[in-house]
Design a protein around this nucleic acid. Sequence first.
DNA 1: ACCAAGCTATCAGGGCTCTGATGTTAAGCA
DNA 2: TGCTTAACATCAGAGCCCTGATAGCTTGGT
Lengths: 150, 150
Amino acid sequence: MGPEERIAAAVETRLGTFVKRAEQALMAEKADALRPFGLSVPQYAVMYALSVAPGCSGAQLARVCYVTPQSMASLLSTLESKKLIERRPSDVHAQVMVTKLTRSGHALLRKADAAALAVEARLSAAFTAEEEGRLRELLQRATDALPADG
Amino acid sequence: MGPEERIAAAVETRLGTFVKRAEQALMAEKADALRPFGLSVPQYAVMYALSVAPGCSGAQLARVCYVTPQSMASLLSTLESKKLIERRPSDVHAQVMVTKLTRSGHALLRKADAAALAVEARLSAAFTAEEEGRLRELLQRATDALPADG
DNA sequence: ACCAAGCTATCAGGGCTCTGATGTTAAGCA
DNA sequence: TGCTTAACATCAGAGCCCTGATAGCTTGGT
């Protein structure tokens, strides 16, 4: 057994390895699907969130996208420079920045979303409805079980 | 329903969301567990691979760690500057760099590994043996199903 | 012997994410 | 009213990862 096989065998004793590999494969596919539109996966995720709930603050977007406010600020800055989103101070809280998709942002998202959904469909196609439900439940349990503060 | 709940509901229709969240929770926990040792998760992964198969080339390590050779070069450079690994030209191929853990690298890995295994144990504890096997099988199927070149 | 393919390493550039720290504004309470 | 707490935004610094491109070495087929 060569060194690469030996490492693979050792690493596959860990359940976490399977989670990571599935996520990596998913990210790689989504990145490939979105590249033609000039969007990264995180950029697409933000735009999708904004399409569901326009006018969010950066902090709100950070929470729903599970990233830090700093990461979100970096994403929003990039998207703003591409003219895909617009930011302006909230009427209520002068220091809160309210964010919305631009017209071209909406148009791009519509096309990018189709590509992203195609990847999701490819993933779901690997499972029966019963299996997919089971997988969701198991992954949710993993997510809930992990945090140390629990 | 507030904007954050609305986005959460929309996003949870996607199976991929559950994969990503589980992976994010896992990475966060491992990062916290390894922080006291001054190691990032990718750094730990490389050192672990080297402990299983000393003398690997950068390209081999890149393959088993599922990153590009460029990413691996960056990791190895950091680890070398910390004196945790040693690199020297291969006897066989002058241009191939052979990598091994240093004495202090071995010592640090032994402690870090215990912390990483504790996280894995916490994850596994959320499942019965039968459930864990099922989860592995479903994740493997997802990983296999995704690549577009298939 | 030669040339093409493949593997190795590395440089350059850009994007994402995090920790840590700072300053501002809004809301709650004594 | 004034203080405290919390939430928001942002700067600074660092690590990881990717795509694209360059260059040396080795192997194998012609």
